[in-house]
Structure formats: structure tokens, C-alpha cells
């Protein structure tokens, strides 16, 4: 079935331009172009959409309002802000509401690529319940120690960007979130950032501080919520770190370029993020996945598939896609290095 996308802007010319430039997508996408927030909401009452791409500031009902309202009725909807305000304020406002924010001017190709990738990861995940779950996620839980450490560092008067970047780098959840924000906001740069240190310095201390302290982009793991007694967040994160570190070292040893080295580390860091999402929200079921794997003597991913109709890898991949983290395994080299590292530490 064709994907349905709603485009909202307060300027007719922008809608006209989008409509024309996206002409070649007509065969795959059913696109509606509406002027202003009010008409967007009216239209959404009679029609379902897979994604909404909206301007931020509009007279009357603004883009954030549109997104919030649409999410209420369609929790699985993909929300993109496309705004000419490429400033801090926009980052602060839309983080936690929209999945990504694109700065105008944004090329047709960027827009098409991004949506296409998200759609395909969403289809790959399949399970509608999981699609809604992932689309609704605002944070991934961090280890309480790391979480408290970053709060302490941010509150300290003599904190440094480097220290803060280093702390984030040790935590997969924070890494994913900070990269979502920076890649989303700086898409216009035309390059992808996969190094947390660089991400933190691009955002600057002020923004990072208010993102963490007032918007709450990080959260700590709540052990009480987890029913699966065999699960340990610490173990998963430690495993991720080990894989990441080894993958990076293999990449360095192979004389790979910086981008591949960074990506190898990142991919190792994030490869199990899907497990955390499933454990946090479907803890009981995930406990049964473990039992299933044991009693039937099948690999975990197969047991996951039997239970959810999807694997934790698909869950993680969709989240990272939605969060603007480019394919973490873009080059075959990265794939090789991470694969090798993973084999060493296989659970």
C-alpha cells in the first residue's frame, strides 16, 4: 500500500514547491498538502497518515500542536518538522515532540531519502504494536550511575565539554539520543555526525545543559518495572561497550578512515538497543522469549520472532532510523569490523 504523507505549511508557495519537486514520488506516496494547522487537523480527522511533515511556526495552530494532536490519534505516525528557524529555540521546542527536524532549505533528495529509509525500517519491523511503541519513545534508559554522573557534571560550575562528551560516550542510550538531536538539527551540514564528542561541541554546553536538565532527554533505568529477572541492563550495556571498543580497535588496526572507525564504535554501542526497548516495555514477554529459546533450543532471535513477530534488531533499527541515526552499518568494512568484534563477545 502507498504511504500517506501530510505536508503542512503556512505558505502556499512552499507547498506548491514541495508538491512539484516530489512529483516523481507520486507512484509510492499519497501526498496531501494543506495550508495551516487548522486545516491539517481537520484533514487528519477523516484520513490516516503514515507521516506528517510540518512547518513549525504558523499563525494560529502551530506545527508542534499539529504533531501532538496527530500523535494522540495515531501513535505510530512519523513526525518531521521542516522549519526555516534553524536556531536553538527550534531544537529545544521540537525535541521530544517530533522525531526529526529538518532545516529549510532542505533538498528534495534529503527529504525523500530520509522518509524512504524510515518507511522501509518500519515495514521491516512489521508488528504494529511495536511500531507505535518505538514511535512513541522519547528516551532510552541509562544506567543510574551514568545518569547521575552526567547530572553532577552538568551542575558543576567547572564542567567541560570534553568530560561531558566522554560520559555520554560510555552510555549507549545517551549516545543515541544526543546523535539524534545533532544529526537532525545539522542535517543541513550535509554530513553525518557519529562522534559524541563532536556532537556535544556542535550543540554547545548551554543547549546540552537545558536539553538534559529541563527537557529531560536522558532517563534512568527503573529496575522495579522489569519482571524478567534474568535481565541486567548493566550486562547488556557492558557487552555493548566491549563490542564497540573492540570494533573500533579492529578498524584502527585495519587503517580504516575516521568515519569508519567512528561508525564501528557506534554500531557496536547501539547494536543491542532493541533488547532494552523490549525489556523496558514488554518485560514479561521477553522473559518468556528466554524460556522459549531454552526449552526449544533455538537462538534468541528466533524466539523473539515467535513471540513478537520481529527481532530486537528490527526494533533497534527502526528506532535509530526514526532518530536520524544514519544506517550505522553503511559500509561493508564497518559491518566486518563490528561483526568480528561481536563474534568475540557473543552472549
Amino acid at each position: 500500500m502507498n504511504k500517506r504523507i501530510l505536508f503542512v505549511d503556512d505558505e502556499k508557495n512552499v507547498l506548491n514547491g514541495l508538491k512539484r519537486s516530489l512529483r516523481s514520488q507520486q507512484k509510492d506516496w499519497d501526498m496531501s498538502f494543506v495550508l495551516g494547522g487548522q486545516s491539517a487537523l481537520e484533514m487528519s480527522y477523516n484520513m490516516d497518515f503514515d507521516a506528517v511533515v510540518t512547518d513549525l511556526r504558523m499563525p494560529g495552530i502551530d506545527g508542534l500542536h499539529v504533531v501532538k494532536e496527530l500523535k494522540k490519534h495515531h501513535p505510530e505516525i512519523i513526525c518531521i518538522i521542516l522549519s526555516g528557524h534553524s536556531d536553538e529555540e527550534m531544537i529545544m521546542q521540537s525535541t521530544g515532540v517530533a522525531h526529526q527536524f529538518l532545516a529549510k532549505p532542505c533538498t528534495t533528495r534529503d527529504l525523500i531519502n530520509m522518509l524512504t529509509r524510515i518507511f522501509s525500517l518500519k515495514d521491516f519491523l512489521g508488528n504494529k504494536k511495536l511500531q507505535s511503541l518505538v514511535a512513541g519513545m522519547k528516551t532510552i534508559p541509562s544506567m543510574p550511575e551514568t545518569y547521575n554522573k552526567i547530572l553532577r557534571q552538568l551542575a558543576s560550575p567547572n564542567n567541560s565539554l570534553k568530560e561531558i562528551g566522554d560520559t555520554i560516550k560510555q552510555d549507549p542510550a545517551m549516545t543515541a539520543k544526543i546523535l539524534q538531536i545533532v544529526n537532525s538539527a545539522f542535517l543541513g551540514l550535509g554530513r553525518h555526525i557519529s562522534d559524541t564528542g563532536e556532537a556535544v561541541s556542535l550543540l554547545g554546553l548551554g543547549i546540552v545543559k537545558s536539553l538534559v536538565l529541563s527537557i529531560g532527554i536522558f532517563s534512568q533505568f527503573d529496575e522495579k518495572k522489569v519482571m524478567d529477572k534474568a535481565f541486567s541492563l548493566e550486562k547488556v550495556w557492558q557487552h555493548s561497550l566491549k563490542v564497540a571498543d573492540l570494533a573500533r580497535r579492529i578498524a584502527v588496526a585495519e587503517n580504516a578512515e575516521k568515519e569508519v572507525v567512528d561508525n564501528s564504535f557506534l554500531a557496536g554501542m547501539l547494536h543491542d538497543i532493541g533488547i532494552i526497548i523490549l525489556e523496558e516495555h514488554f518485560s514479561e514477554e521477553y522473559g518468556r522469549v528466554r524460556e522459549l529459546a531454552q526449552t526449544k533450543g533455538i537462538p534468541m532471535y528466533q524466539a523473539e520472532y515467535e513471540m513478537f513477530g520481529a527481532t530486537h534488531a528490527a526494533v533497534g533499527a527502526y528506532l535509530l532510523g526514526l532518530w536520524a541515526l544514519d544506517d550505522p552499518l553503511p559500509s561493508t568494512n564497518t559491518r566486518r569490523f563490528v561483526g568480528a568484534a561481536w563474534m568475540v563477545f557473543r552472549h
Binding site: E11, G17, S21, R23, G84, S86, D87, K104, P105, T108
Partner: peptide
């Protein structure tokens, strides 16, 4: 300046799109 950037970014967006078309 922020407002002016926006006033420039918006027409740039649709001029780009039109040229792509």
C-alpha cells in the same frame, strides 16, 4: 537576524524545490 534568516530560508526552500522540479 534569526527572523531574517527565516525570511530568507523559506523562499530558498521553494525556489530550490521549483528548480528541482
Amino acid at each position: 537576524a534569526a527572523g531574517i534568516a527565516h525570511e530568507i530560508n523559506t523562499p530558498t526552500q521553494f525556489v530550490n524545490d521549483n528548480i528541482h522540479f
